[in-house]
Nucleic acid binder design. Sequence first.
DNA 1: GCCAACGTTGGC
DNA 2: GCCAACGTTGGC
Length: 136
Amino acid sequence: MPHWLLKTEPSEYSYDDLERDGSTLWNGISNALAQKHLRTFQLGDRAFLYHTGKEKAIVGIVEVTGPPEADSDAENDKAVAVRVKAVKRLPRPVILAEIKADPAFAEWELVKQARLSVMPCPATLWKKVVSLSKGA
DNA sequence: GCCAACGTTGGC
DNA sequence: GCCAACGTTGGC
């Protein structure tokens, strides 16, 4: 089961908002590579939610609750959106600085390609982030 | 607030 | 189809 990372600007839509809503349609993704990733999402896949802007931290885990569907808001009629639900907040946020400080993450798009908003998260990195979130 | 990185647009 | 100009994102 693949894992992912979704970015969001918390002043626009935060993990708090998702917890309040229960689930939301993750739409408005226009970048071609991000769309390519989004199209391969499957029911039950899990993703980290990352807050950009002031926070720059992975804050929680979400789960895909349906297959990719047409993003009816998008100008591009091939664009897809995916419904996700909140699973759990991480015990503590894992900030970008500590991710960058660890060479294990050096090849991850989160570090290498700052502007990509939907990306895969290799299983080893997933475990590492979860483990970091349990630390001090 | 600045700017590097990257994507998109449009003239040729 | 190339590439210069421009716009956007997001870290700093």
